Computed example of a mutant assay.
Amino acid sequence: MRSLLLAAAVAAGLAQVPAMAQGAAPQMNLSRTDLTAGMFRLDVQLAQTPQQREIGLMFRKEMPQQEGMLFVFETPGVQCFWMRNTLLPLTAAFVADDGTIVNLADMKPQSDDSHCSARPVRYVLEMNQGWFAKRGIKAGAKLGGKIFSTP
Rank of each mutant, 00 (worst) to 15 (best):
4 L>F: 00
7 A>K: 03
9 A>E: 00
9 A>G: 12
12 A>P: 05
17 V>R: 05
20 M>N: 08
22 Q>D: 12
22 Q>I: 10
24 A>Q: 15
28 M>E: 15
29 N>F: 09
32 R>G: 02
32 R>F: 02
33 T>S: 07
35 L>C: 04
36 T>K: 01
41 R>D: 13
43 D>R: 14
43 D>H: 12
44 V>W: 03
46 L>H: 06
46 L>S: 05
47 A>F: 06
51 Q>D: 10
54 E>N: 09
58 M>E: 09
59 F>T: 06
62 E>T: 01
64 P>A: 13
68 G>Y: 05
69 M>D: 03
72 V>R: 01
74 E>Q: 14
74 E>H: 12
75 T>D: 06
76 P>A: 00
78 V>R: 10
79 Q>W: 08
82 W>D: 04
83 M>A: 03
83 M>E: 03
84 R>W: 02
84 R>A: 08
85 N>T: 09
86 T>S: 00
86 T>L: 01
92 A>G: 10
93 A>K: 10
93 A>V: 05
94 F>P: 12
94 F>Q: 04
96 A>Y: 06
97 D>Y: 06
97 D>T: 13
98 D>L: 02
102 V>W: 13
107 M>K: 03
108 K>F: 09
109 P>Y: 07
113 D>S: 13
114 S>V: 09
119 R>S: 08
126 E>K: 12
126 E>R: 14
126 E>H: 14
129 Q>C: 05
130 G>R: 02
137 I>K: 08
138 K>V: 14
142 K>M: 13
143 L>Y: 01
144 G>V: 12
146 K>R: 11
148 F>D: 01
150 T>V: 11
150 T>D: 09
151 P>E: 02
151 P>W: 10
